[in-house]
Computed example of a mutant assay.
Amino acid sequence: MLTERVLSDLTKAVIARDKVKITKKQAESIIEQARVAFARARIDPHEAAGILTAQSIGEPGTQMTMRTFHYAGVATVNVTQGLPRIIEVVDARKIPQTPTMTIYLDDSKRSEDDSKNALEAKKMAAALEVTLTKNIADLNTDVAQRRLVLNLHKGNLKQRNMTADEVRDKLGRALRLYIEADKESNPKVLTIVPGRQTESDKDVIPSYTELLQLEDKVKDLRLKGVPSIQRANVQLDDETGEYYLSTIGSNLTRVSDMDGIDRSRTYTNNIMEIYDFLGIEAARQAIVNELKLTLEGARLEVDDRHLLMVADVMTSEGAVRAIGRHGVSGTKHSILARAAFEVTVNHLLRAGIVGERDRLTGVAENIIVGQPISLGTGSVELYYVPREN
């Protein structure tokens, strides 16, 4: 039986071949051919699908390089590739080594003028990038006067799309202190005294420890941008001529809340973020996408069904689990299967203490005890009854 999705794909394929109208006989022929192809591609009952998947991914995996980085578009955005990336995905790492996002702007931010589109993309990049105080000012600690002096960089402020008045206002609200400026409008130097909350508090004499604590706090204070987005680069898609952003760092939840973002095309390589924000089905598809992208990057061809098998096993319990003793292998029902993977003594000891039983239904446990496995020819029982002449 063909699903609605398959029928939809067949329809799109017909339209792509400039076939606007087809006869009833042609439609029945296409559906019949698709049904035959489906039947031919279907796996046999009781086939060892997991072993086939492991071999089909493991063998090409030996050809993968151990290189960690490859430059994605520009030399400033590094992305983990090859075997290290495959390990990251199947280990279900909470934070990948090089988290990155691809962000597209929605229709409200696009026009027919390329220069305007580039400007909008730059504005969005400036809004996304984390701006710390140390990025836009030189911090000098005046120990004698017990104060912190900030010399603002005009060029850096312009690049980050910020003003000196904005910096002063944000520092005042974040620190809840009075921020003294060398001039009221567009100041160049800001002075902060620990403990001084209003302009009239001129008699406050802070300690040296308070001054150092304030310096540490001000230096890494986030004035603007989305947390974890260290850098956002504007790039041009050569095929569509559309500007998009490629980031170092990822924060899908916060980026999706911003105006002007096309949420349907915004993507992150952080699978756990996708799971937290969009759910388990989206995480399952992200696992397939990331595995396929990494294998194709290494010029290796693996059938999609093997990648789907890995994704299904990792997400079958409603959460993203690692393929290891802290995830899939460590939560198997069989004691012997768990013990065969890692920390053998611990599993056997714990099972003995609680009186756990092993039903010997899987592959590993039957091999350990020397029995035929319940797959392939071992899945059926055949008896030969000779005929009497």
Rank of each mutant, 00 (worst) to 15 (best):
176 R>D: 04
198 T>A: 12
188 K>D: 06
185 S>I: 12
217 K>S: 05
212 L>E: 15
191 T>Y: 02
214 L>G: 09
186 N>W: 00
179 I>P: 08
226 V>Q: 12
207 S>E: 11
213 Q>R: 11
226 V>M: 11
192 I>E: 02
198 T>R: 09
224 K>I: 10
214 L>I: 05
216 D>V: 02
226 V>S: 13
201 D>N: 10
211 L>E: 07
230 Q>N: 14
221 L>K: 08
179 I>T: 05
212 L>S: 13
194 P>K: 04
176 R>P: 03
224 K>S: 13
195 G>F: 00
228 S>N: 09
208 Y>H: 14
202 K>P: 00
216 D>I: 02
215 E>W: 04
211 L>A: 10
183 K>P: 00
206 P>L: 03
188 K>A: 12
227 P>Y: 08
218 V>T: 09
191 T>N: 09
180 E>T: 14
185 S>E: 12
179 I>G: 04
215 E>T: 10
183 K>H: 09
184 E>I: 11
228 S>Y: 10
211 L>F: 03
190 L>F: 07
212 L>I: 13
221 L>G: 07
225 G>E: 01
210 E>T: 04
189 V>T: 15
211 L>T: 05
206 P>T: 02
227 P>L: 13
228 S>R: 13
211 L>W: 07
184 E>T: 15
194 P>Q: 03
222 R>E: 05
190 L>W: 03
197 Q>Y: 00
216 D>H: 14
208 Y>A: 13
174 A>K: 12
191 T>W: 06
206 P>V: 02
208 Y>K: 15
218 V>L: 05
210 E>Y: 01
203 D>A: 15
192 I>S: 01
203 D>K: 13
186 N>T: 11
222 R>V: 10
223 L>I: 12
173 R>K: 15
209 T>G: 07
177 L>S: 02
219 K>H: 12
181 A>C: 11
